[in-house]
């Protein structure tokens, strides 16, 4: 019984996180479509609900009722596994993301995160690195040229951008003396890291965009030259799982940007609770990603590799060197 009581807060937190994450794509698709529309000077979905607010529900319904098509020559088991595999890492990452200071609920202290890890930052980077497996499986199992090309691209892209991404956060870790995310946030109480580590932020932002395979680095699904890349052959509910994973990765990336460089929940205006302020910041970054998406064209593949290896990697190494010298 005591065991269950001890587990109860954890279970409640898990239920909340999973529930919110599963429902998150609904407002996000609406937001993305509206932002896309307004950037292109059109109103976007307007017909289902007030200003198209129910449009995501209609979309979801459509996707769920569509035919679930599996190509004849596909590797059926892997084909079925791939969307689920793509979905696991984003969910896993949110176990390590803190959403605020510990709060008092019914006299007991409850941390606003699932697991307070000492190696939290490294854990997040590692787990987001294995997000590529969903893409690889999808591309390989579809047994289609476009899909395989898409997953080959995503592998190369992931390997090249993981390195600058990992290096760019080292400056932050050095400043906070810890890889624990709550402590990294606590270390930014006076000054946000983006002021101290502008180069680190720049590299992390760009590498993160590439890691999440967002435009302008969405080479794996480049619909201009690869059909739809790795999910060319997917339809119906499996496709919607890929979309879900994509949105979760975007939110995760926004949360990481806020936690590492924009002070997490620090510096909230007097009337806002910390967590709400933190979520607002995340929303802002999600908006920035969408803004980027509808502004820039896709990079060419060789340009992508050149940016990763010739610009971001030296910049991140230089950043480590300079911040190390300054801290001494």
């Amino acid at each position: 019984m005591e065991y269950v009581l001890a587990l109860l807060p954890m279970l409640v937190k898990m239920a909340i996180v999973v529930g919110v994450l599963l429902l998150l794509p609904l407002p996000l698709t609406w937001m993305e479509r509206k932002i896309a529309a307004h950037i292109q000077q059109r109103p976007g979905p307007m017909r289902v609900g007030w200003h198209g607010l129910l449009q995501p529900l209609a979309d979801a319904l459509k996707l769920l009722t569509k035919e679930d098509h599996i190509p004849a020559e596909a590797d059926r088991r892997l084909f079925a596994m791939a969307p689920v595999v793509a979905l696991v890492p984003p969910f896993l990452v949110f176990t390590a993301i803190p959403f605020g200071e510990p709060v008092q609920v019914f006299g007991t202290e409850v941390t606003l995160m699932l697991s307070d890890m000492n190696v939290g930052l490294l854990f997040i980077l590692a787990v987001s690195g294995i997000g590529v497996f969903g893409t690889i499986l999808a591309g390989w199992a579809s047994n289609s040229k476009y899909a395989v090309l898409g997953s080959l691209r995503s592998i190369a892209q992931m390997i090249s951008y993981e390195i600058p991404m990992g290096f760019s956060v080292i400056g932050v870790v050095m400043l906070a003396n810890s890889m624990n995310l709550s402590r990294i946030v606590a270390a930014q109480e006076d000054l946000w890291n983006v002021v101290v580590q502008p180069v680190g932020f720049f590299v992390f932002f760009i590498a993160g965009l590439a890691e999440a395979q967002r435009i302008p680095f969405d080479l794996p699904e480049a619909e201009g030259d690869l059909g739809a890349g790795y999910h060319t052959e997917y339809s119906g509910i499996r496709f919607s799982l890929f979309m879900l994973a994509e949105y979760l990765v975007v939110v995760m990336l926004a949360a990481l940007n806020v936690l590492l460089f924009f002070g997490g929940w620090q510096g909230s205006p007097f009337f806002l609770p910390d967590t709400v302020w933190f979520l607002l910041k995340i929303g802002f970054f999600v908006w920035v990603f969408m803004w980027f998406r509808f502004t820039f064209p896709r990079y060419r593949y060789d340009q992508l590799m050149a940016i990763g290896w010739k610009v971001l990697l030296p910049l991140s190494l230089l950043n480590i060197l300079v911040s190390g010298i300054l801290m001494l």
């Binding site: 932002i35 307004h38 000077q41 803004w291």
Partner: peptide, 13 residues
Amino acid sequence: TLRYMFSKTVTHR
């Protein structure tokens, strides 16, 4: 694109 985003839409409804 930011300016476009906060400008009036040009399409007919």
